[in-house]
Nucleic acid binder design. Structure first.
Lengths: 251, 251
DNA sequence: CGGGAAATTGACATTAATCAAACTTAGTGG
DNA sequence: CCACTAAGTTTGATTAATGTCAATTTCCCG
């Protein structure tokens, strides 16, 4: 698709970054672009279901999602799993590990993905050479924190049905925020087990509550995913407060 | 206590910062110290129970806790409350608001506090002038994220008794990590309502489970706070995985 | 000593978890 | 094209965990 053919697995240059084009993301100055070109180590293609990072590991890398979806989770020794958040285009993966040493959570792909790869060791260099980009990294970390706060409110205080409503609106809203179509469809292939593990519910109960929301004509579950029937009522049910900024930085 | 007497409410200079002396926190270079002296706007004294920040507000300030404790929480319209984390000496308050514009959570003091005050508008200046300090800010944000992940696991997947055990060990561990005595005492005056709102439990059930842990001789609840009787068993019950770094940056 | 906040308790209601099974779907190999 | 399988979904029955309600008690604090 690009001009340069003969190289195997040719990666997109930062100049042609598919994310930058999207109106949801901010533009880069020429300097920033130049820096990113050097900072970028390569691209990684991941299969659906593959493990991207493992709790306890020390990776030398740091990623930004170029396409696809993943989920971030923690496990207890006896197998209980808690999904803490999802990663979508424009999100960073592994920042925590870069800063704190060891990964405290695992990440797994929910779809085929392509990631932009950076060198963890060079992160400090980014702070040295581009305060703007450093500020963006912090902004991104701060946004993550914001989402986690809300997830915590959901898991701790919403009822099962509200939880599901919240999650659906959350995922839809985020997919819109990174420029994906999402006209009332949450195009993520999610298992009800994923929903359960995100919301702190059992699989069976999750299924029953999804069924109830379907009866109420708020959504449909089909093809291993969720279709929104009545966004407005879902929002109200979840007491959704929109708080998503317009233009956002990335990487 | 300081040499300079006649000024009302004389604040401590960064050179004599009470946190810096503690071995738990990292040292500053002379440059960093110089920068902080200029960055610091003043000190704020807060009463127990006072609101430090309100959800939805736009404050021009950013804080670091010098002494005392606070909790960070979100509320739903119908009054349900979720405490998402606690702030202790060395923690920043309001970073999220600084980066994202509007506060997405509120903060309330659990004890008398003194805060170090910075100008939100100058945060970017910090990134420009000191990459090291900027990196520290990001590190701190990242650590917060790490705690939130674990809290999410707790609220979502631990049972009521495990939750309480977790919270007690968590608070104790954090109080140790910022250099407070905490020899088996969690010196935070917490209400059982706070515990309930942190863990996503009802007040009544929280009380009953605390009682049960007391019967099992794991802890005592007295004087509006918690005393640890058997740290090791609490850890095991909570499946606590220690993951707290030794030397940490602040502010 | 009085009053209010916090803690505690018992009875009861409800939500959600667990267990066990059946069903559906998509993919696979014959 | 048809078993056959595996993963995911759905259901009903039952149990366990947690929430709600309504007092009551304890403990501070002025």
């Amino acid at each position: 698709m690009d001009a340069t053919n003969h190289r195997p697995r040719q990666q997109v240059s930062c100049d042609a970054c598919p994310l930058r084009k999207r109106q949801e993301f901010r533009d880069f100055s020429e300097d920033e672009l130049a820096f990113m070109r050097r900072f970028k180590r390569g691209e990684l293609t991941i299969d659906k279901g593959a493990a991207i990072l493992q709790e306890g590991a020390h990776t030398p890398h740091l990623y930004t999602v170029l396409s696809g979806w993943a989920f971030r989770y923690k496990m207890m020794r006896d197998g209980r799993r808690q999904i803490v958040n999802y990663a979508m285009p424009g999100d960073m993966i592994g920042l925590q590990g870069s800063l704190m040493g060891e990964m405290q959570h695992s990440v797994e792909a929910l779809s085929p993905m392509t990631l932009c790869v950076f060198e963890r060791a060079e992160l400090f260099g980014l702070f040295t050479r581009s305060p703007e980009l450093a500020y963006d990294v912090t902004w991104i970390a701060s946004r993550e924190e914001c989402m986690l706060d809300e997830n915590l409110l959901t898991v701790g205080r919403r009822t099962a049905q509200e939880k599901i409503a919240y999650l659906v609106v959350f995922l839809w809203s985020r997919s819109v925020a990174c420029g994906l179509t999402g006209r009332n469809v949450v195009d993520i292939t999610l298992t009800q087990q994923h929903v359960a593990d995100t919301l702190g519910l059992s699989l069976v109960h999750t299924n029953k509550m999804i069924r109830k929301l379907a009866e109420r004509k708020l959504l449909t579950w089909s093809d291993g995913g969720c279709r929104i029937l009545d966004l407005e009522r879902l929002r109200r049910l979840a007491q959704w407060d929109d708080a998503i900024p317009a233009k956002r930085p990335f990487l």
